[in-house]
């Protein structure tokens, strides 16, 4: 780990001002990903601006009937928050599917959005990686890419975004509140993270001096018909090979609205408007689910070690839709997939 300056910010404005005036600085909150990346020499910040004591640690109801979640709320606290458990259970479930309780006790909501890919080549500074060093090449394309992306890839990068929480937030159509030196703005969740395209070094659309201050959930939480299904190599404490967040609104035996987001398959939580439209107005049965799943994976591309994920994702979409429609969401403690 290279040496760095350390400063603890006491206000959002001070944090943003320090960041703008300190080239090479990074914000730190929970540190669960950043400290590890610093140990691996992947991240080499000149300074850390500690935002962990800023007053951004509350969950509050919004006038519009939604929730505003401070960026420093811990992952475990949000998973177990009574309003989240009752009104946004897909979010609670996704949070509990991620990491371990120790890490959830440390990790902040804002930091969860900003965690970096776990692509093995991103972590290995001895190998080329366009995300770590722009223009150096992608080692995963022809390498060990079992954990890598099958959708939205580019010739420059096939990394996946590792978050579970963000998959649920994508399905719920959350908004991200940020503050920079030029003021505050609100970013739709779909516009927050990026696909790799020609600039895989950019994970998201934050400006360099912007701090995530909170997440806003809209009123609709899909508390009856939802599921978060995560498929992984171990039944706990492992990153997703494929995960699926489903939120359905049913009426009269038909699907009135469907939200479908996939994790572990792309550089950002993956939504497919065409597949969701194909579910809308249809009977909630396996044939419908299979048609939607086929649409989601129709443009998928495997790279050898990860090609199995295409079939796995197709089946996981069908299973998660069945769980959501049946009102029998995947349990995050009893790992039997029903």
């Amino acid at each position: 780990m290279i040496n760095f300056q350390y400063a603890r910010a006491v206000s959002v404005s001070e944090a943003v001002r320090l960041m703008a005036g300190t080239p090479g600085a990074k914000f730190i909150a929970g540190g669960t990903n950043l400290v590890d990346l610093m140990k691996m020499d992947v991240e080499r910040p000149t300074a850390l601006i500690d935002v962990s004591r800023l007053p951004l640690d509350t969950v509050e109801e919004t006038p519009g009937g939604g929730l505003h979640i401070g960026a420093l709320v811990r992952n475990s606290d949000l998973a177990y928050h009574p309003l989240v458990e009752r009104r946004y259970p897909v979010l609670s479930s996704a949070l509990l599917a991620g990491a371990s309780q120790q890490l959830r006790n440390m990790a902040s909501i804002g930091g969860n959005l900003l965690q970096r890919t776990r692509c093995a080549y991103f972590y290995d500074v001895a190998t080329p990686c366009n995300k770590r060093e722009a223009g150096s090449g992608c080692s995963a394309l022809g390498g060990l890419n079992r954990m890598n992306a099958i959708l939205g890839t580019s010739d420059n990068c096939i990394a996946v975004h590792p978050s579970d929480m963000c998959v649920a937030l994508a399905a719920l159509e959350a908004k991200v509140h940020v503050t920079g030196t030029r003021g505050e703005r609100v970013i739709a969740f779909a516009d927050f993270h990026r696909l790799p395209e020609a600039e895989p070094q950019r994970d998201n659309n934050l400006a360099a001096d912007e701090l995530v201050t909170g997440i806003e959930l809209p009123q609709r939480g899909f508390e009856t018909h939802y599921s978060y299904l995560k498929i992984r190599d171990r039944s706990s404490y492992a990153f997703a090979l494929v995960s699926v967040a489903v939120c359905l609104e049913l009426g009269g035996g038909r699907i009135r609205e469907a939200r479908l987001a996939l994790g572990g398959v792309a550089h950002k939580p993956w939504r497919d408007a065409g597949a969701e439209a194909a579910l809308s107005g249809q009977s909630a049965n396996e044939a419908t689910f299979m048609r939607a799943a086929a649409l989601v994976l129709s443009k998928a591309k495997g790279f050898g070690h990860n090609t199995f994920k295409i079939d796995l994702a197709r089946r996981a979409v069908v299973r998660a839709l069945s769980q959501a429609a049946g009102g029998t969401p995947q349990s995050q403690s009893n790992k039997k997939i029903a």
């Binding site: 350390y6 603890r8 730190i28 540190g31 669960t32 400290v35 590890d36 140990k39 691996m40 850390l48 500690d50 962990s52 475990s76 371990s100 309780q101 120790q102 890490l103 006790n105 440390m106």
Partner: peptide, 27 residues
């Protein structure tokens, strides 16, 4: 492991279990 993957360094900070290996002491 010293990388947050094994839990051997689990301690309690302000009553909550966390990983000491991923905690910067100055914070």
């Amino acid at each position: 492991c010293d990388h947050g993957q094994c839990g051997a360094c689990t301690i309690l900070v302000d009553g909550r279990r966390v990983l000491a290996c991923l905690t910067l002491a100055v914070m």
